[in-house]
Amino acid sequence: MAQGVPVTEINEEIAHDVHGGRHIVPVSVYLKVFTALMVLLVITLAAAAIDMSKPPFNMPSLNIIIAMTIAVAKAVLIVLYFMEVRYSSRITWLFSIAGFAWLSIMFAFIFSDYVSRGWLPQAPR
């Protein structure tokens, strides 16, 4: 008995694994996502035009919170639909989540430096 599998058979299998099984997304989905992104863009601009540290809001950080929330929503839409993660395998989900988790490591540690810089009393000059 010969050992192994003929190279060609295996190649087809691999080709299918790597390139195959691709979900075809209807154009209408892209259009809907695009519309949603544009709407969110308008909201971003509108929200930025209002200074929320003044009455009636009186919340100085509300501007940035709203802007960041909308930005995250947009990014999620792009990753899920334009980058087709929504239709991809579990492992692709894992890797794309890891990317963001890693970014959050960076931000968490950098910000913790900035936050804690003033904690230690400085020696008088």
């Binding site: 890693w102 490591i105 540690f109 913790s112 430096d113 936050v115 804690s116 810089r117 904690w119 230690l120």
Partner: peptide, 22 residues
């Protein structure tokens, strides 16, 4: 390896607390 980079900043003006953690 992603959690240690602050050891290059011990004398760069990074907060002392961040230094301890790193």
């Amino acid at each position: 390896s992603f959690f240690v980079w602050g050891h290059h900043l011990f004398v760069a003006g990074q907060s002392a607390y961040a230094g301890i953690v790193f």
